[in-house]
Every structure is written in structure tokens, then in C-alpha cells.
Design a protein around this nucleic acid. Sequence first.
DNA 1: TACTCTATGTATAACCG
DNA 2: TCGGTTATACATAGAGT
Lengths: 154, 154
Amino acid sequence: MRGPNDHRRVQMERMQNKSNLQVTFSKRRDGVFEKATELSTLCGADVFVVDFSPRNKQYSFRNPSVESIMNRFLEINPPTNTDVANPVIIAHQNANIDEINVNLNRLEISLEKGKNMDKHFTHQGKNLQLKLVPLTLKNCARSWKLQMKKFKEY
Amino acid sequence: MRGPNDHRRVQMERMQNKSNLQVTFSKRRDGVFEKATELSTLCGADVFVVDFSPRNKQYSFRNPSVESIMNRFLEINPPTNTDVANPVIIAHQNANIDEINVNLNRLEISLEKGKNMDKHFTHQGKNLQLKLVPLTLKNCARSWKLQMKKFKEY
DNA sequence: TACTCTATGTATAACCG
DNA sequence: TCGGTTATACATAGAGT
């Protein structure tokens, strides 16, 4: 039933045999999910596992929910951010970012010319600066975390 | 060395003994991470695991990086969203959401009065509606995904 | 509280159909 | 490429220190 070199101790390196790799991936993926399930059940822990196969297919396990766990994760691990110097993030689903930035710039110029900016567009004594930044997860998470922090202050 | 009832087969239910639970959590957490590491090494798979202990401490394993994996995850699993009716999300780290909404409303009224809105604040023939929505991860992820989609079109 | 030990249960690599 | 088998390696619960 088994060959002479079946020592069943695998080297911890990327498997070369493609078909073996696929089989191993499936089995070990199931194994990781099973362990995660047991950890969750036995210890009442929130667990989230996601992995991507060599063929780029995605598998995930979650308890209780992705959003709940990601919120907790991002709360504890705020993404470091050197890209967002401005306090405002605007995203528009139908617009090119540069194009909106130009529009905002025009809007601010228009407001300045009309002397309306100080009156209508300030907050806590500071001008509300508008600037589009790429809506990356990192940028969102940062703002999201700040919102969370603010929420907790109430 | 061992007691008479040491059958070592654990029931799959929440452990009642608190100190045993803590020990089991540590051991099994290490186990899950070790399995995740092996899966990543053997199969070249991207893996992300995060869990929260009964004491609310967070542990995570990631390969290659959280952002990379979360971007892939959210790309494949766009959050369903019924909360964002408006195409614009604005977040401001120092402002109360309702307060900014009021300011934006005033701004838009001001623009309408000045007849500047059509000229400066449109995109592709449609008025650019501004409205604050809560900056939840879900809302961000949705907009982020739409940006990604747009990016791919280029 | 935190290690160490170890008997036992579990996961799985290679093999087979 | 799949699902099933089995020998072996690995994980781990409970006990001891």
C-alpha cells in the first residue's frame, strides 16, 4: 500500500510538485479551518481566517463576522499612515479623483471670492480643508479609527 | 504520571474551567498559527489569521501583509450595503458628522444662491451631491471597491 | 502562574482505485 | 483529478513540578 520512501515527514519549503501542492493545500486548508473552529468553540474566541490558494481562489472562516472582527482588529492595529496629511477624505463613486480635486479647488476659490468660506465652512474655529485622497483601505481605516475614538468619548 | 480519567478526548463545547480555558487557548492559538505558517510555506498561499482571546487580547498571523490580504478579501467579498444611498463619503477627524452635514447643507444652499453650483460643482452632467455618512468599514470598503473597479478600467 | 511531560487523539503524505 | 486508506508525524489535555 505504500512505497519504500514514505517517511511522511515533509520539508518545510514550497512544494514543487504542482498536483501534490494542490492536494496538500486543500487538506491543510481544511485543517486550519477545523482548528480555528475548535478554538472558537472551546474558548469562545473570535476568529477570522482567510487564505488564497495558489490559483488565487479565496477561502475564509469567520466567527462571528468579518466586519466585527476587522473592526476590532483595526481598532487595535491602526494602520500607520504617512499619505493622509489632510483631515478630510472624500470619495465619489463616479468621479475621477483628480477631477473632483479640481472641482473642490474651484469651489474653495469660489467661496473665498464670495467671502462665504469663514461663515459657512468652518468648524471649531478652523477652516474645513477639503482634499481628495485615494480611498485605500489604509486611509479609510485611519479615519474610521478616529471616528471610533470620537465615538468613545461620548 | 496521569490520572485515571485522562482520556484526552475533549468535548467540543465551551470549556467551563477558566484556567484550563486560558491554557488551552494559548496552546491551540499557537497550533492554528503554526498550521497557518506551514500552509503559507508549503503552498505559497497568502494567509491571514486573527483571533481574540477570552480576555480580549488580539493575536494575528499574516503573510504577506494585512492590507494586501484585506484588499484581496474585500475585492472578492464586497460588503453588501444598504446604508449608503449617496455617492459621496466624507469623513473629518475633528468634526461631528451631523455638524459637518449642516455645514455642507449651508454650503450647497450658498452655492445655489450664488448660481455657482452648475458651473463648478458638477461631474459628468450630474450635480455632485455631498452628504456625510458614518465612516464604517463597510461604507469605506464599498467605496474603495468602486474605486478599485474604476482603476481596473484604465 | 507558567513550564514540562507524555499518553493519546488527530492530521496528513503518499499511495491506490 | 478526485475520494478513500493507512502508517506515521504531530498536536495537545491533563497531570506534575
